[in-house]
Amino acid sequence: MFMTNTEIVPGRTITQYHGMVSGSTVRAKHLGRDMMAGIKNIFGGELKGYTELLTESRKEAIERMIQQARQMGANAIINVRFSTSSVAAGAAELYVYGTAVTLN
């Protein structure tokens, strides 16, 4: 699946619009990681556990979006946007959305 965050794809034309597709995940890390992050909050620095968690979750959200686009019969997703919000303590929602299209 071809993905881009631009509205147009230079050199290729859009033959069909399928509509908006999106994918989201809400993820939390296990208690141990949360405690580690709590300790890291004293020392400062990168929270590698959380970086990993969010990257993984985002991949999953993208995967869900791609599945949706496949069902519509699209071969590309354009104008992709990401958004993140923390829902509760230690849990984050990753949301990704875009427009499914067919490129020639």
Binding site: M3, N5, G11, N41, I42, T51
Partner: peptide, 23 residues
């Protein structure tokens, strides 16, 4: 120019924590 090119979505992310003193 519109030459022999292809496009790909790229991203990078990081989580950084404050330390107690800064807080």
């Amino acid at each position: 120019g519109p030459g022999n090119v292809r496009m790909e979505l790229v991203s990078g992310s990081v989580v950084i924590s404050v330390d107690y003193f800064k807080m």
